[in-house]
Amino acid sequence: MIRGQFVDEAVSRRKFEREVARYRELEGEYRRRGWFLIEAAFPTVLVIFASPKLAPKTIVCAVRLDFTNYDLVPPSVTFVDPFTGIPLPMKSLGFNMRRLDGVANATPQTITAMGQQGRLVFQELIQAHSPEEVPFLCLPGVREYHDHPAHTGDSWLLHRRSGEGSLHFILEQIWASGINPIRNINYHVQYQLQFQGFLVDGAALPR
């Protein structure tokens, strides 16, 4: 019996297996995007995201999804160390998930120009209350979003039949807002090479 499981486990297991089977059907496409599903044993899935656009090809993050009580409850999403599986605090994450605000109809050229002028407004999708805390993905379809006191008016049950909260949906959001826009790595050279962050193409961010 899975700890904390109150939904009939057979139901959650079957839905979990359906999600994983759908992933496996498109695994080749996902791999080309830099998604690697390396563990899938009910109730968790571990996926590593790499950026195929960087040289050398670089692991950006790993994410664990917990499907306990799925889908009466949406999956829990935790960013973890890809080598140890230990949840990462905000300060160690090393990448952002962002969405552009207020430029729904702007062309990529306009967004690039606005970015050069420092006029783009971003919405941060990964939130934490301090750099020491494990961050959460603040998005409908994710357990931590619906459990947050600020979102008591946006119940998961309003989203449950929408397609949000599926394995594909959550991985797609992470990729679209955090991985796909990455174009380069920013290093700072001072005595030694120091990682400063990824450089992203603002025009490739979701709006």
Partner: peptide
């Protein structure tokens, strides 16, 4: 064909 993510934050 991808579902647009809902309001976040």
């Amino acid at each position: 064909l991808s579902l647009k993510a809902g309001a976040a934050g």
